[in-house]
Design a protein around this nucleic acid. Structure first.
Lengths: 223, 223
DNA sequence: CGTGGTTTGCCATGCAGGCGACAATGAGAC
DNA sequence: GTCTCATTGTCGCCTGCATGGCAAACCACG
């Protein structure tokens, strides 16, 4: 099995596809690799869909007052880009790699669109994947709008640990590529507040934290 | 042209469909009507997709502390329900009619799924409609998370007026079916704050407001 | 017409968290 | 090592908004 197949399967995009359908799908995918700081995607550029294979990518946009808002931290298996094939993207979202390196697949929207049109099962897989993404997004935003800063920060950590955490006994470790200021931009608060709360949590023994990684009790994931 | 066709066309779901495809689509749609206060949809019930034809519907959920959060105010042309065909809805969203009466179309997810699978053009229309919806959602939430209460309230009014407002010279009027407390639940603030801000706006001459309708300068829509 | 329930208006209090300023620490470049 | 820039830590002030409580206005209905 060639590697593309492997990841497509792992990330639930090729479920129930026939061998030839899979080949077709692989045919319109090209694999790319990039390093920290590179911008792989900016609204306005050619319409494309991305599937992250390894690394971390931040999906962000800059608002009118010049502040960066991080909308999402994409991890392996996540889709991003012009997910709904539409021409009319009015916002100015972009995707920047924040891990040392990242590997990702790229599909042109047009090709994907026509392939999906002729491959019902792919449509189902795709729609369910995109649907999941939006459901998560909705939940996350609902949370962000209603909760205080500490809860929001913990929510981020949990989501993140669930997708990308490594178990070490009853502790969970996540590799950290974000500064306090990045975290602040994710939960839309100020850098200072993040610092304070992080130290509170450290104080309370809930997490331990340095520039390389964040570690906390796996119990925290429970709720 | 039978009425279903008319609305499907008006709401961009039947663009570029052949006559027979259109008939097939109409075949799986049933039209319903309901009155204020009725709940047309609750997560956990049979999976269905709704298209609102007339009236207003609030899409909401109740959080763990018992407060209602209004996620969206659906207006004619809006889709809601199990839009991405998935079984796994873990949240407890519901849809309640808040206009005197409402007319809407209902489609079972399974039938819609198989029809879409065999009708590429329908897939495109559908995906683009759902995509638009999510894009709006994302923008709205971004706004909600980052802005203060007054901006959020105005944002709501604008969105609402854009979709449902009636022009009267340089003024725009929207019919109001919401209490201050509903407005508060939409932008996640307190009832009192809504009251205060509404009066501020009234004072400043930006809007005029009573229980039946809200009216403001069409200039407000510009930005 | 009054009467009870809902919606709106207003006030006092308290606090979370934004923001500016500046110091301390760390990390890479030379 | 030292220099420099980015990141983190801490403080104080101040404002936006939540919250509770209560009065006034409005509405539906017998």
């Amino acid at each position: 099995m060639e590697p593309k197949n492997f990841y497509l399967k792992a990330f639930n995009l090729s479920t129930n596809l026939s061998e030839t359908q899979l080949q077709d799908l692989c045919g319109i995918i090209s694999q790319k690799e990039a390093k920290r700081g590179q911008v792989v995607y900016a609204k306005g550029s050619e319409k494309r869909i991305f599937l992250l294979i390894s690394g971390k990518v931040k999906i962000a946009e800059v608002n009118e007052s010049g502040d960066e808002m991080i909308k999402e931290l994409a991890l392996p298996g996540d889709l991003f880009g012009d997910l709904h094939f539409s021409r009319e993207g009015v916002n100015c979202e972009y995707a920047e790699i924040i891990s040392e390196r990242a590997i990702y697949y790229v599909m042109e929207v047009d090709k994907m669109n026509s392939l999906i049109s002729t491959t019902p099962m792919l449509m189902t897989n795709y729609l369910s994947k995109v649907g999941m993404k939006y459901q998560n997004m909705e939940n996350r935003y609902m949370f962000m709008v209603t909760k205080d800063v500490k809860s929001r920060l913990l929510y981020c950590f949990k989501e993140w640990a669930r997708k990308d955490g490594k178990r070490l006994g009853d502790r969970v470790v996540i590799k950290n590529s974000l500064t306090h200021s990045d975290l602040a931009n994710m939960i839309s608060t100020s850098r200072q507040t993040v610092t304070v709360i992080l130290n509170e949590l450290k104080e309370a023994g809930a997490i331990s934290y340095n520039r390389k990684e964040i570690e906390f009790s796996s119990m925290m994931l429970a709720n």
